[in-house]
Design a protein around this nucleic acid. Structure first.
Lengths: 223, 223
DNA sequence: GTCTATAACTAGATAGAC
DNA sequence: GTCTATCTAGTTATAGAC
């Protein structure tokens, strides 16, 4: 019915500007107001496209939502796996070092969330919101990207911290993911006292990884 | 136009059952599907009330949303302040102890989120979602409850940890709040591996406060 | 105080001209 | 590939009977 625009031969080479503009506008609006609060009309209006464009290029709002996430999640997850592989390689056949694993996990998030090339703070806020979004499209799309990566990191952490149970690793990772997203959400935000929350990617990564190591090595009563 | 139902004299004493039923149904549906995804029809349907009831009792969906939060936030914030006051009193005119302050902050959240009397896991999930919800009604309602309490805790933490800057306290608190909400969100959730996330309030409070103390005393590079 | 019917509006999706 | 006009369905809010 609505076959993908086929880029054939002589026509405009890159997958039409309109498509990209819609993607950018949607990402910005979703990050700012939340997915449900943004209508297709809002998006096409901001993108300077016509109302039908979303259906033509993506096949509906839901598919557009998935496309917005796919564009950002794929390179992020790839980067995480790449760095995890490096961390494991540099440990030989000994267990990887805890701080290297946690660095592979969290630094890419911070760097992507602060790099304009990857969508910058927008995608940080969007992902932070989406992790807790009950919207089934969001949940499914995110799960598809995250699940295989999460499994790899769980394995690596179990090797790095042989004293912890799988359940314990699960809890600590979720605490840290919550902490990460909360701080991505606060980034660049105006505070009641008038000051603006700000930190550069390198400082923040270092602080966060240190925080994560502390969380993983902390002695918890009864554990 | 839509004056509050005045309970005068002989009529039904308690603020009509319908009102409560709507509040309960709304809380449950909001927690499960998110506020935007739930219509007034869904709510009145689940509450066994008629469509007009929300407008009659609350004056619109937005006011209902605010009422849902007010009912749970007020006792939670009260409890936090009460325990903080105790922690400060027991320290005399010395700075309060870090773990006592963090306990006053986080234990009430966990206990309320796990006590059926306060809405149980529903309100935990609802609050976790709402902290990152860009919905302006939610943001305003939550801010109204949280801000004065946050100021009190910031002061107490500054006294308990004189080595940290205000900015550093700000960051660590937000990391911890994110961590708390992420875990409240995971509670009672079915995992991909089939097992269900579960922990009793006392264990979880203890673990979380220990985690929070570790986070506050952790040595962060460059700080 | 409760309910039904309906008004006024906005959503996403689509058909067809250009 | 882009645009306009329109369809259908869902939304909140309200008016008025009981």
């Amino acid at each position: 019915m609505n076959r993908k625009h086929s880029i054939k031969g002589s026509q405009t080479e890159r997958p039409c500007v309109t498509r990209q503009r819609i993607l950018d506008a949607a990402e910005k609006l979703f990050a700012k107001h939340g997915i449900d609060a943004v209508s297709v009309r809002d998006i096409t209006g901001a993108a300077g496209a016509n109302l039908g464009a979303v259906n033509y290029h993506f096949g509906g709002k839901d598919k557009l939502v998935a496309a917005v996430f796919d564009r950002r999640m794929a390179p992020l997850m790839e980067e995480r796996l790449r760095r995890l592989a490096l961390a494991e390689a540099s440990a030989g056949n000994k267990p990887p070092k805890l701080d290297a694993v946690l660095d592979a996990m969290f630094r890419p998030s911070v760097e992507h969330a602060m790099s304009p090339r990857h969508g910058g703070a927008l995608i940080g806020k969007l992902m932070a919101r989406s992790m807790v979004d009950p919207n089934p499209v969001v949940e499914k799309t995110l799960g598809r990207h995250i699940e295989p990566v999460a499994r790899r990191f769980d394995q690596a952490l179990a090797r790095a911290m042989p004293g912890l149970t799988a359940e314990d690793i699960f809890w600590r990772m979720h605490l840290l993911i919550g902490a990460l997203h909360q701080s991505l959400l606060m980034m660049d935000r105006k505070l009641p006292n008038g000051r603006t929350v700000r930190m550069d990617a390198e400082s923040f990564s270092k602080r966060f990884v240190a925080f994560a190591c502390a969380a993983f090595t902390a002695k918890i009563p009864g554990v």
